[in-house]
Simulated scan of single mutants.
Amino acid sequence: MVFPFYSKSCFFSFSVSVVLAIVPDPKNVRVTSVNMGAVLEWDVSHQAPGNLTYTAEYSSDTAFKAVCQNQTEQRCDFTTVISPYGIYVFQVRAELQEETSQWVKTSEFIPDSNTLIGAPTVRLVSKNGSLEMDIREPVLRVSSLKEVYSRVSYNIKYWREGYEDQVTMMSDIQQTRVGLSRLEPWTRYCVQVQVFIKTFQKRGEFSEVTCETTTTNGRMEPWKIGVVLVVSFVAVSVTFPLLFLLTCYSYKGLKFLFPTAKLPEHFRQYLIEPSSHSNIFMAMQNIPQMDEQYHEVSVISEWMEGPLEEGGPLYSHSERLQGREEEAGKEMEEDEEKYSNTVTHVD
């Protein structure tokens, strides 16, 4: 504020101006709106003091209502108090203790017309020589896209990777599942999609670049089929004989390592209890060889008449034979006793 002061003396006049400090107005006041949000933002001049606070209000008819008061942040979010179909005006002022700046107002803000639609989400799948796109609409902060707009469509552009200057456009597509056909097999293609609101001629942000490689369409040329059949026949002709030989040799090897013949029972007993048999064998080896005992036997073919008389020739010969037999029996008993004693000592 400037106050003039005048003085006259000797045809001389002068004036004094007194300048009082004022609070600077917010600069560059604007509304940022993405997906039906509404955020009021502003800037401050470099000459403004650093301890300013701000108050922001909105109006949908004639009266203004405060949403942000005495805050230092240079933004205010009005998303929760607006409707997609309303018409709003926002204003903000700076404050320094008891002094305030002038209110700075925005132009009319219409959410469904002025908001920026974000990018959709795109999923790309390769199938039978073509590419299938699954498009999901962006999520709005207020309501949903199809509830706010009666007609929602998409603009699609795609190109072969490395050939960005050769873009193919598909406009005003209302389906959310779209197929791209007539593509070259085993080639990588990239796509981008944006929302298009025809009522307001509004175009949203493009999605991120999504790329995928195509495959064949499932058809095979006749000469390729012939090559596959020949290779398969050769592989089968070589593989089956090799498997047969391998099976035969494996069976023979197993028969050799694990024979099925069984040992006789006395061999098994001998192998199970080798200690007792070895002791008997050693005892038999240690027994000295005995001389064979034999006696003369005289055969008398002469028969004499009459009874045998004591002291006669036949009688006397019989007595001798009997005596010899008794001696031989005694010697055999002695030999058996000696053999049993030897075996007992070895055990």
Rank of each mutant, 00 (worst) to 15 (best):
L243S: 14
S181M: 07
E302V: 15
V44G: 02
R203F: 09
A283L: 08
G311V: 07
Y294A: 15
G329K: 13
Q269L: 13
S144I: 02
C68A: 11
G162Y: 05
E205I: 04
V191Q: 00
E326D: 11
E325N: 14
T187P: 02
L131C: 00
E147H: 08
P313D: 11
A63C: 05
L20F: 11
V2N: 09
Y251G: 12
E208N: 13
N28E: 11
L321T: 13
E305Y: 11
E333F: 10
V16W: 03
V29C: 03
P222Y: 04
F206K: 05
S59N: 07
T342Y: 13
V231W: 07
H277D: 14
N35W: 04
T199N: 07
E325A: 12
L145Y: 07
V104T: 09
S15V: 14
W42R: 02
F109C: 01
V23Y: 02
T32S: 12
F244G: 09
Q71F: 04
K8I: 08
D77R: 06
C211T: 05
V104Q: 07
V227R: 15
R177G: 00
S83G: 07
K146L: 08
F12N: 11
F281G: 14
T216I: 06
Q174P: 01
V193N: 00
L145V: 13
V167T: 09
Y149G: 00
T53L: 09
S107Y: 05
L245H: 10
V29P: 03
T100W: 03
C10G: 10
N155C: 03
Y315T: 06
F240C: 06
W42D: 02
L271C: 13
P241C: 05
V148G: 02
Q166E: 14
F200A: 05
R324P: 06
L124F: 01
